[in-house]
Each structure stands twice: as structure tokens, then as C-alpha cells.
């Protein structure tokens, strides 16, 4: 940008400045709209072509629900959906308990070796998932656990979910839950807890009646994050499951490798709807608890 000639009068100068700032505002807004279009267009197109009345995902030939019907009739896809749900529920419950304990211990106490424990809880968040995946693969292969499945009847679906996958999911989710719960703990007002102990509540009563209820939005936020991450995970599941176990993302990856059809778009749209609903739930919860910060959980 070359600097304009200095305007002769202050009036013109002021006008020029106003014009410049207006121009800046317009181009910024235009840019913002374009950037959001970039973020949303691929997803919108993906959804549109899930209704396409031909095998193509790039040429529109009319509206149909057929691909959704095909999806729900596909036994393997349905099984993988049940697998995903079961895995997400179990790993979320365990990770939420472990992560909350970790958050309480790390946020409320000082002790020797705290820095080391602290960094250990951040590592699973930072480490690339491919590295974590092969680490766990080697570990489970070496240890006696192997890829033994947990056979369970889940709402009528007969599932065989390897313990290795559940543990893998808990391993990365615990850290995320710990981070979210810690953030909530850090901004919590401690005077209420002090008041409780002044009124002769013992440590357990204080925790049960004061700390835990106040902490609940953080715990729920952490659990929702864990649930979403577990549903979304592909890499760690793919490597820690051994052969023959599919979650929905693993199944989708396999389908993509075989060829592109609107059926994949239909499955994708289903997953999109699920994650959108989870986002809406987390917004509602955070709105009710009145804290805006916990909304952007995950960061």
C-alpha cells in the first residue's frame, strides 16, 4: 500500500480518514462472510448430495431418501453405530470420573512432583494421535490384554468391543475432561466452601453439598467433550481394535477407500446431526450455568 498524498486541509483529512475506516470495515465484513462460506460450503454440499438420486456425488439428478434407507438396512453400518455408542458411553463414564479426580487433585493441592504429574496429564492432548495409536497398539499386543473383546448385549445388539479400544479412548479422554473441569475449578468462588467448613461440615459433606454441585457444569461439559471426541475418533480406534471391530468412523473410512457413493454422504449427515445436537446440548447447559467460557470447551 502506497501512502496517499497528505491531504491539504484538516476537514478533507477527516473525511479521508472516515472513508478509509469505512472501506476497511466493508472489506473486513466481506472477508468474514467469505471465510465462513469456506468453512460451511463443503459441509452443505456434502449434505445436499446425500439426497442425490444417482450414484454420483457431483452431478445432481433429483431428490431421494433412498440412501438413508440403504444406510439403515446395512447391517454392518448399524452394528458400527451401536459399537460407537457403547464405546462412547463407557469410555465417557470412566474418563469423567478419572478426569474429575485428576482435576481436583491438581487444582486444589500442592505436593512434590506436581509439575511432572501435571505434564503427564497434558501429554495425551498434545501428542499426535497416530503416535498414541501405535504406542497403544504395541502395548496391547505385548501385554496379555491383547484385543480381547467385551461381549455385551446392548439394546438387543450383540457387541464385541475390545478392551484395548475402551482403554485407548479413556486414555485420551481423561486428559480432556481434566482440563475442562480444572478450568471450572479455577474460576469457582471458594468462599462458599470455606463457609461450609466454618459451619462444621466435614470435608466429605463440603465436597458433596458445595463443591460438587458447583462443579457440575464443568463435569458435564467435560463429559460431553469426551463423548464427542470418542464418537469422532478414527485413528486410535483403527489401530487399537485388532481385526473385525468397526466403529462408525472406521466403517466410513473403509467405505471411502472402496469408492465414493451418496451412502457415505448419508452416514456423514447422520454423524453431523449427532454432533450438532451435542453442541446444542452443551450450549444449553452452559447458558443455564451462566458461564460463557465453558461453552468453548475443547480449547
Amino acid at each position: 500500500m502506497s501512502a496517499p498524498m497528505p491531504p491539504p486541509t484538516t476537514l478533507e483529512h477527516a473525511r479521508w480518514e472516515r472513508f478509509k475506516s469505512k472501506l476497511g470495515g466493508w472489506s473486513l465484513t466481506t472477508y468474514g462472510i467469505l471465510a465462513f462460506a469456506f468453512l460451511y460450503l463443503p459441509i452443505v454440499i456434502l449434505v445436499i448430495f446425500s439426497f442425490n438420486d444417482s450414484r454420483s456425488v457431483s452431478k445432481w439428478s433429483g431428490f431421494t431418501w433412498a440412501w438413508y434407507g440403504k444406510m439403515f438396512q446395512d447391517g454392518q453400518i448399524m452394528l458400527s453405530i451401536w459399537n460407537s455408542l457403547f464405546l462412547a458411553i463407557v469410555s465417557t463414564i470412566i474418563a469423567t470420573v478419572l478426569g474429575t479426580l485428576a482435576a481436583l487433585g491438581l487444582e486444589r493441592y500442592r505436593f512434590r512432583g506436581k509439575t511432572a504429574v501435571d505434564s503427564m496429564f497434558y501429554l495425551p492432548v498434545i501428542i499426535p494421535d497416530i503416535a498414541m495409536a501405535i504406542m497403544l497398539l504395541i502395548f496391547f499386543n505385548m501385554s496379555g490384554i491383547g484385543f480381547t473383546p467385551w461381549k455385551v448385549n446392548f439394546f438387543g445388539a450383540r457387541l464385541a468391543v475390545p478392551y484395548s479400544v475402551i482403554i485407548g479412548h479413556v486414555a485420551f479422554n481423561t486428559s480432556f475432561v481434566a482440563i475442562v473441569v480444572r478450568a471450572r475449578l479455577a474460576q469457582m468462588d471458594r468462599t462458599l466452601e470455606e463457609a461450609a467448613s466454618d459451619l462444621y461440615a466435614n470435608a466429605w459433606q463440603t465436597f458433596r453439598r458445595v463443591t460438587l454441585p458447583m462443579l457440575m457444569p464443568g463435569i458435564i461439559g467435560g463429559a460431553l467433550l469426551a463423548f464427542t471426541l470418542s464418537l469422532d475418533d478414527f485413528v486410535i480406534t483403527f489401530f487399537t481394535s485388532g481385526a473385525g471391530f468397526n466403529t462408525l468412523p472406521v466403517r466410513v473410512f473403509g467405505m471411502i477407500k472402496k469408492g465414493v457413493t451418496p451412502k457415505i454422504n448419508a452416514v456423514s449427515t447422520l454423524m453431523l446431526v449427532v454432533s450438532l445436537s451435542l453442541v446444542v446440548v452443551s450450549i444449553l447447559i452452559s447458558m443455564r450455568s451462566g458461564s460463557e467460557d465453558s461453552v468453548t470447551i475443547g480449547m
Binding site: 468453512l39 463443503p42 456434502l46 464427542t228 468412523p249 456423514s268 453442541v279 461453552v295
Partner: peptide, 29 residues
């Protein structure tokens, strides 16, 4: 900020697949 995070909460695999359907050489949109 929400509008920004919604695509991020969408499964990474699916977002990558969306680009596959757009970019493919002969059949991409």
C-alpha cells in the same frame, strides 16, 4: 465463535471426505 466451532466439532474424517467429493480429478464437483 459458535459458527466457527460447529465445523470443528464435525467429524474430521467427514470434513476430509467432503473435500474428496469436491476435489477428485474426473468426478469431483
Amino acid at each position: 465463535v459458535f459458527a466457527l466451532m460447529i465445523p470443528f466439532w464435525t467429524n474430521f474424517l467427514i470434513r476430509t471426505y467432503a473435500w474428496l467429493t469436491l476435489l477428485r480429478t474426473h468426478t469431483g464437483l
